[in-house]
Computed example of a mutant assay.
Amino acid sequence: MASSSNNGNDGSLDDICDDSFDDICDERFDAILDQRFDEVFNNYLARQASKKAKKKRAYIEREREVGHQCLWNDYFSENATYPSNIFRRRFRMHKHLFMRIVDQLTNEVPYFQQRRNASGRLGLSGLQKCTAAIRMMAYGCAADAFDEYLRLGESTAILCLENFTAGIIHCFGDEYLRRPTREDLQRLLDFGESRGFPGMIGSIDCMHWE
């Protein structure tokens, strides 16, 4: 009787043990899954926040109008602070040539035209943009070297230089960026001879002087 009684309970005990084991496994699996999901989700949020932090750029109010006015008073006003000889040294050209370049670029290249933004505020002037480009070429300096004076950022200065070189090619390429004609060569020879350098075309580096 005892033997038959035990045999009758074996199936129910096994079922109970199997159900308990399955429940424990399900609970542990769910816990591991939830933990892993939380880790992946938190890592995703951290990466997104890091990307936003990298993309976020601090806006600096440079007061570009002040930069234009200061530049104008220093070199281009009727009673400019610095005379023409200092302008020639710092810009590597005469003022009338610089103004010719600025006027030509302003008339033919939209990038150098001063415009108003959506709020009605004027952007950088053609003088500021051209000055930034020419100073970078004249001094071979970094793009942010004139930020405090001209009031434009590094990326804007690089754009000024790129658009300036492209604008010069567009506006003056056919006239100046070409092979010299016979008349051009003769004019250069005559000019060099009048300065004491017969037979010279272009500049001289003084390496061949005795």
Score class of each variant (00 low, 15 high):
residue 98 F to P: 01
residue 55 K to F: 10
residue 137 M to K: 05
residue 78 E to V: 04
residue 46 A to D: 15
residue 75 Y to W: 11
residue 74 D to H: 00
residue 97 L to S: 13
residue 40 V to A: 12
residue 108 E to V: 03
residue 81 T to P: 01
residue 181 T to F: 03
residue 128 Q to G: 03
residue 191 F to C: 13
residue 173 G to S: 13
residue 111 Y to C: 14
residue 51 K to R: 14
residue 82 Y to G: 05
residue 39 E to M: 06
residue 128 Q to Y: 02
residue 93 M to V: 07
residue 36 R to W: 15
residue 11 G to N: 11
residue 190 D to K: 07
residue 163 N to C: 12
residue 161 L to P: 02
residue 45 L to M: 14
residue 139 Y to P: 02
residue 68 H to T: 02
residue 111 Y to K: 13
residue 138 A to G: 05
residue 108 E to T: 07
residue 41 F to M: 12
residue 85 N to V: 08
residue 130 C to S: 03
residue 177 L to F: 12
residue 43 N to S: 11
residue 174 D to Y: 04
residue 152 L to Y: 02
residue 173 G to L: 13
residue 176 Y to S: 14
residue 202 G to Y: 09
residue 119 S to E: 15
residue 122 L to G: 10
residue 174 D to L: 06
residue 134 I to K: 01
residue 47 R to F: 08
residue 77 S to Y: 02
residue 99 M to L: 13
residue 44 Y to M: 15
residue 136 M to D: 02
residue 49 A to P: 05
residue 129 K to E: 01
residue 153 G to M: 05
residue 189 L to S: 04
residue 42 N to M: 11
residue 158 I to T: 06
residue 89 R to Y: 10
residue 191 F to V: 08
residue 144 D to K: 00
residue 79 N to V: 04
residue 200 M to C: 11
residue 95 K to V: 12
residue 14 D to T: 07
residue 95 K to F: 04
residue 74 D to W: 00
residue 62 R to Q: 08
residue 193 E to P: 00
residue 174 D to V: 02
residue 165 T to R: 08
residue 178 R to E: 15
residue 188 L to Y: 06
residue 116 R to I: 02
residue 147 D to M: 03
residue 69 Q to F: 01
residue 89 R to A: 14
residue 193 E to V: 00
residue 87 F to N: 06
residue 142 A to Y: 11
residue 103 D to W: 05
residue 103 D to C: 10
residue 89 R to E: 11
residue 154 E to R: 09
residue 165 T to Q: 10
residue 144 D to I: 01
residue 139 Y to T: 09
residue 136 M to I: 09
residue 171 C to H: 06
residue 78 E to L: 03
residue 9 N to P: 00
residue 87 F to H: 04
residue 81 T to A: 12
residue 157 A to F: 01
residue 24 I to G: 08
residue 4 S to D: 15
residue 2 A to D: 14
residue 104 Q to R: 10
residue 48 Q to A: 07
residue 160 C to I: 02
residue 132 A to G: 05
residue 45 L to P: 04
residue 174 D to H: 06
residue 115 R to A: 02
residue 13 L to N: 11
residue 6 N to A: 11
residue 201 I to D: 11
residue 80 A to R: 04
residue 29 F to L: 10
residue 92 R to M: 15
residue 191 F to E: 15
residue 159 L to N: 09
residue 13 L to E: 15
residue 20 S to K: 07
residue 65 E to G: 01
residue 172 F to L: 14
residue 206 C to K: 12
residue 84 S to I: 05
residue 25 C to D: 15
residue 129 K to L: 01
residue 76 F to S: 04
residue 1 M to Y: 07
residue 174 D to A: 09
residue 45 L to C: 12
residue 209 W to Y: 10
residue 100 R to Y: 10
residue 72 W to R: 06
residue 210 E to W: 03
residue 93 M to C: 13
residue 62 R to P: 01
residue 77 S to L: 06
residue 193 E to L: 03
residue 94 H to A: 13
residue 90 R to W: 02
residue 149 Y to K: 04
residue 36 R to Y: 15
residue 152 L to D: 00
residue 105 L to A: 03
residue 126 G to V: 03
residue 102 V to I: 12
residue 48 Q to G: 09
residue 146 F to Y: 13
residue 115 R to Y: 00
residue 84 S to H: 04
residue 87 F to C: 08
residue 67 G to I: 01
residue 175 E to W: 06
residue 110 P to N: 15
